[in-house]
Computed example of a mutant assay.
Amino acid sequence: MRLLVAAAFALVLAGGCQQPQPPAPAAGAPTKGPLTAQLKAEGDALMARGDYERAVVKYLAAVNQEPKDVSLRFALGVALSNLDRREETIEQFRFVAINGAPGSNEVKLAREWLAKAGALDGAVPEGRQEAKPDTATASGPPKGRLAGRLQWGGIEPRDHLVRITVAIAGEDDANRDVRMQGSNFKLGWGYDFKNLPPGAYRITAENAGTRMWELKVSVAPGKETVLDLTEANSLVTPKDFTPQDG
């Protein structure tokens, strides 16, 4: 199963080696910063040599710079799949399947791998829902989105893999039945809940049984509400609590 994706990725690398100049980005595609591009190139070179462990380190560093870049997530997933790190591969390929351009090779390969791994159902990580158009329906106003970064004392995923459980609960009559939770978010990256009925929510986040955040937030209809969870709005301080890896 891992060889299928790795072989496709090797073809991409081989094609790139034959071209003196890289192809121009597709219209609307994000342009990587110089540091991210360098990390990606170093990861690609390591992948071509079969050095998957070190490639993962490079790709993780690149993803930390630009966590929403689908091509970086795909490359990281390929490297992880070659190390048989199943759960981490699932996480990356699900991100690609949800956020990648429909019909793109990356999305097709990610979905194919997930299907063979028995992890395609919904293709949505725990605690998330498929993105749907934010348009008004007969059932109510446009849905909203709540997202933000998880930051704590300079912890980065490439150095420490610290998992955070984030949960939200509606507090208005119109959204009181909304209860969502994700246990695979990581410090240094972020969280994201989509397709939310607008209104007031309570958001909590924990690590190893310690509640680090508990806040109220209002999600606007048809918009993305950003709430970063940092030391500044935490229930605990870096002096009092050190998040646990794993």
Results as ranks from 00 to 15, higher is better:
Leu215Phe: 06
Leu227Pro: 04
Asn195Glu: 07
Met180Trp: 09
Ala220Asp: 10
Gly190Ala: 05
Ala205His: 10
Phe193His: 03
Trp189Ile: 07
Asn207Val: 03
Arg158Ile: 02
Lys223Thr: 00
Glu224Asn: 03
Leu161Ser: 10
Glu224Ile: 08
Leu215Arg: 15
Arg176Val: 13
Ser234Glu: 14
Val226Ala: 00
Trp213Glu: 12
Asn207Ile: 05
Ser218Lys: 11
Lys223Arg: 11
Val166Asp: 10
Lys223Leu: 02
Met212Tyr: 14
Thr210Cys: 13
Ala200Phe: 10
Met212Leu: 15
Trp152Gln: 06
Gly153Phe: 01
Ala220Lys: 13
Asn207His: 06
Ala208Lys: 15
Trp213Tyr: 14
Leu215Glu: 15
Ile155Arg: 04
Trp189Gln: 12
Ala167Val: 12
Ile168Met: 04
Gln151Val: 05
Thr165Met: 06
Asp192Ala: 01
Gly154His: 04
Lys216Leu: 13
Ile164Tyr: 08
Asn184Ile: 09
Glu231Met: 09
Lys223Pro: 00
Pro221Leu: 02
Lys223Trp: 00
Thr204Asp: 11
Trp213Arg: 13
Ala200Cys: 11
Ala174Thr: 15
Ala169Met: 10
His160Met: 04
Val162Pro: 04
Trp189Arg: 13
Arg211Asn: 09
Glu156Gly: 02
Ile203Phe: 06
Leu227Gly: 01
Asn175Ala: 07
Val219Phe: 05
Arg158Tyr: 04
Glu156Ile: 02
Val178Gln: 08
Asp172Tyr: 06
Arg179Tyr: 12
Gln181Tyr: 05
Leu196Gln: 04
Lys194Asp: 12
Glu206His: 15
Ala208Ile: 11
Asp192Leu: 05
Asn233Val: 10
His160Cys: 02
Ala205Phe: 08
Thr204Tyr: 09
Asp172Ile: 07
Asp228Asn: 14
Tyr191Val: 06
Ile168Lys: 02
Gly209His: 12
Arg179Gln: 14
Glu206Met: 14
Asn207Leu: 03
Ala169His: 10
Arg163Gln: 14
Leu215Ile: 12
Gly199Met: 03
Thr225Lys: 06
Leu150Glu: 01
Leu196His: 00
Gly190His: 09
Arg176Trp: 08
Lys216Trp: 11
Lys216Met: 12
Gly170Cys: 05
Ala205Cys: 11
Gly188Cys: 08
Asp173Val: 14
Gly148Glu: 00
Trp152Arg: 00
Gly188Arg: 03
Thr230His: 11
Val166Phe: 03
Ala167Glu: 14
Ile168Leu: 15
Arg158Gly: 00
Gly190Phe: 10
Asn175Cys: 04
